[in-house]
Design a protein around this nucleic acid. Structure first.
Lengths: 331, 331
DNA sequence: CTGAAAGCGCTTACAG
DNA sequence: CTGAAAGCGCTTACAG
């Protein structure tokens, strides 16, 4: 059987309270007592029961991170940084996937309220997210990505500005007919479309719905399929703005299959600056942000919220920048 | 305040036991009573406290999955399937990263024993993994990937055979000077090297250590750097066996930077069949396995182990197959 | 500086 | 079919 504080106390000849004091360092314990307790701890191979501690303290040291689709390289990199940032703060991370059905988000909220996790970092898929509503008792939650409800803490990068800037860059360099890949009704896509339209408007170009191509599941293979179909029926655009680097991979492949090369015939830009973008053929021009800073900020905001449920709601914008590589060229 | 079973019982005019019966369906409850309880459950917005349940039952419904580096596309796809498979079995997943220091593995074992998780799926980084030893009280654990200690349950694909077969394919098609990328002292690499050497030996070719190139952190950018350096000093090989698809991306880029194209000048093969491999330039020849089946098997084996700690240790091999694409051609 | 007791919220024998 | 009690393992007032 596993040893409990009681067993340790018995062996050390002290009370459970003293063991707890040694474990948590709450009060000063005399060196002699401490030594006895530590001997017992080791001898009995004591490991605290976190469920019991969680029940008592109302904290488990576990937070949840919910992303739309864990298969994406973007998700992979964010997961890495979340786990690292959490570990350095003594927290552990439970992961969840919210894609493919809004109910998952509601479930998650319940689980948070079920207190096996202390809080939740949620990347909602839809703007009209039913999960996050003012009237329901919210667990501590930080929304990441694109949300416009000022109902919970929020960490994001300014998508509208980012896409606007990168579209601007293409426009400045002579591209006129610019396609957008990833256009659908998800929160992320909606906001990025706003930025795209904004840049076009500033340049005096009318948005052409024909050039706004969806890619329902956001995978490279999916973008490839949809963009291939587009190219079968349409003249190639001057440039393609992809809502993620992963989409860009599929688009570049579709162009190659239509004997169009990047950037000679068509320029392509991405978003996220995943690691592989730096070695892709061609190296991808994209939007970068500090993922470590992003995740650390999200966790710190969540921790603050857990500590004080009544503090004012805050929104943090993480800076972004354009990384110029080889997938674009002036026309 | 949150409602407890006690509150619900009070409102429904029954005992906590009856509420528990309704919640868990352990015993039959009369429809009238059930209805009263359900009304109270809803009215009070009851959510069970999982820490309390975990303390009582010794189960939390949470398992941990530990992978070497979560940034890899391989990890991303595995995480997705683990979360899906777990969800369909009513389990949740905590993720951990074991790379960059063996102590994390030991930590993980303790955490499992700390019972906030019911069990652990671990992809150990090193064969001489100190974490998994016979004398320490192991929590329920399933090892995935390359391990040769028959100390715990094990799910893997036969790496030796897989790399041997794909190297064979290259040899059969006339490649003689074959490089290997990812050669280091990790468990995965060691086993894959065995398969590589086996194929060479069968073909009567002597292994050339010069052609076995490490890529310490296994990222595409890292493989790119190391393979670039290799190409600076050496004649290009006929083919390159990459220990993962991600490494292959970096290798293909290095070849491109030396004006060598794939497969015209050099053939390249990968391992894992990540989604992006299907659209890469060129589309990558690689080793595929059923990731859903792999993860479901691992979780089922773990569940069985949790249910019966004394059952015999088992090892399951998931089949693999070569996916032929455009990154190789006969010479 | 330390001990004995109570209680976090749940479920499971034990009675009825 | 239901109730009252005990206990999972921990930590925190409350006394000394």
């Amino acid at each position: 059987m596993r040893a409990t504080v009681r067993d340790v106390a018995a062996r050390a000849g002290v009370s459970p309270k003293t063991v707890s004091n040694v474990l948590n360092g709450t009060f000063r314990v005399s060196p002699a007592t401490r030594e006895k307790v530590e001997e017992a701890l080791n001898a009995l191979d004591y490991v605290p029961n976190l469920s019991a501690r969680g029940l008592r303290n109302g904290r488990t040291g576990m937070i949840a991170v919910a992303l739309p689709d864990l298969r994406m390289s973007y998700s992979a990199e964010m997961c890495h940084h979340f786990v690292q940032a959490a570990a350095s703060r003594g927290l552990h991370v439970q992961i969840e996937e919210t894609g493919g059905g809004g109910d998952r988000e509601v479930d998650l909220m319940s689980r948070a309220r079920a207190q096996l996790i202390d809080g939740l970092i949620l990347n909602p898929v839809r703007l009209e997210s039913t999960a996050v509503q003012r009237d329901v008792a919210l667990p501590p939650v930080v929304l990441i990505g694109e949300v416009d409800q000022p109902i919970a803490d929020h960490v994001w990068i300014d998508n509208v500005a980012a896409i606007c800037e990168i579209t601007q860059l293409l426009l400045d360099e002579g591209h006129r007919r610019i396609a957008l890949v990833g256009a659908d009704n998800t929160a992320t896509a909606q906001l990025r479309m706003v930025g795209f339209h904004q840049a076009l408007r500033t340049a005096g170009i009318e948005a052409d719905p024909e050039l706004e191509i969806p890619s329902p599941d956001w995978h490279s293979t999916d973008a490839n399929r949809w963009f291939n179909t587009f190219l079968d029926d349409h003249q190639a655009p001057d440039a393609v703005v992809c809502m993620t680097d992963t989409l860009a991979m599929g688009v570049i492949r579709a162009l190659a299959d239509h004997d169009l090369s990047v950037p000679e015939d068509v320029s392509v830009v991405g978003y996220d600056n995943i690691t592989d973008s730096a070695v892709m053929l061609p190296r991808l021009t994209t939007i970068d942000f500090d993922k470590q800073k992003f995740t650390e900020t999200a966790i710190d905001v969540l921790t603050a919220r857990i500590a004080d449920p009544d503090r004012p709601i805050m929104s943090v914008t993480i800076p972004h920048r354009i990384i110029r590589r080889d997938s674009t060229r002036p026309r």
